[in-house]
Lab assay of single mutants.
Amino acid sequence: KELVLVLYDYQEKSPREVTVKKGDILTLLNSTNKDWWKVEVDDSQGFIPAAYLKKL
């Protein structure tokens, strides 16, 4: 599985998104959309702007 590093805090703005903190390491589930990547946070899944993430 691929991991990503969160570069900036992000507060979810819709139920399909997730809240993350700078420095979090998350599992990347889908990066086919260049603007929004799907990640797994704890036991939930959701989208975060790709610009907030860096592949490890």
Rank of each mutant, 00 (worst) to 15 (best):
K1N: 10
K1L: 12
K1V: 12
K1F: 12
E2C: 15
L3T: 07
L3R: 10
L3D: 02
L3G: 02
L3Q: 10
V4C: 10
V4I: 04
V4A: 07
V4N: 00
L5Y: 09
L5M: 10
L5K: 06
V6S: 01
L7F: 03
L7K: 05
Y8S: 09
Y8E: 13
Y8Q: 14
D9R: 03
D9L: 02
Y10C: 03
Y10A: 01
Q11N: 13
Q11V: 14
Q11H: 14
Q11P: 05
Q11L: 12
E12F: 15
E12K: 15
K13G: 08
K13N: 10
K13S: 09
K13H: 09
S14P: 06
S14A: 09
S14Y: 09
S14H: 11
S14R: 09
P15S: 11
P15A: 12
P15R: 10
R16W: 15
R16H: 12
R16I: 11
R16V: 10
R16P: 07
E17H: 09
E17D: 05
E17G: 15
E17V: 07
E17M: 08
E17L: 08
V18Q: 04
V18N: 03
V18P: 02
V18E: 01
V18F: 14
T19V: 06
T19F: 06
T19N: 08
V20R: 01
V20Y: 07
K21S: 08
K21L: 06
K21A: 07
K21H: 11
K21F: 08
K21Q: 08
K22T: 06
K22H: 06
K22F: 05
G23Y: 04
G23E: 02
G23S: 03
G23A: 02
G23F: 04
G23L: 02
G23T: 02
D24N: 08
D24T: 10
I25Y: 04
I25D: 00
I25N: 01
I25H: 03
I25F: 04
I25P: 00
I25E: 01
I25K: 05
I25M: 05
L26S: 01
L26M: 04
T27P: 11
T27I: 15
T27M: 09
L28M: 03
L28D: 00
L28G: 00
L28I: 04
L29K: 04
L29W: 03
L29R: 03
L29D: 00
L29A: 03
N30V: 07
N30L: 08
S31A: 12
S31D: 14
S31I: 05
S31Q: 09
T32W: 09
T32K: 10
T32V: 09
N33P: 04
N33H: 11
N33M: 08
N33A: 07
K34L: 09
K34Y: 07
K34H: 10
D35N: 14
D35P: 02
D35G: 08
D35K: 13
W36L: 05
W36Q: 03
W36S: 03
W36R: 03
W36G: 02
W37T: 00
W37N: 00
W37F: 04
W37L: 02
K38Y: 15
K38N: 06
K38W: 13
E40A: 13
E40H: 06
E40G: 08
E40C: 14
E40Y: 06
V41L: 13
V41H: 09
V41N: 12
V41I: 13
V41T: 15
V41R: 11
D42P: 07
D42A: 14
D42V: 10
D42C: 13
D42S: 12
D43I: 07
D43N: 14
D43Y: 09
D43S: 13
D43K: 11
D43A: 11
D43E: 12
S44I: 15
Q45V: 14
Q45P: 09
Q45F: 13
Q45W: 15
G46K: 09
G46W: 13
G46A: 14
G46L: 15
G46Q: 10
G46M: 15
F47H: 05
F47Q: 04
F47Y: 14
F47L: 08
F47K: 03
F47W: 15
I48G: 01
I48S: 02
P49C: 07
P49R: 04
A50R: 10
A50Q: 05
A50M: 04
A50I: 05
A51M: 13
A51C: 15
A51Y: 13
A51Q: 13
Y52L: 12
Y52H: 13
Y52D: 04
L53N: 00
L53G: 04
L53K: 01
L53Q: 00
L53Y: 00
L53F: 01
L53S: 02
K54C: 15
K54Q: 14
K55N: 07
K55S: 07
L56V: 10
L56I: 14
L56H: 04
L56G: 02
L56D: 02
L56T: 05
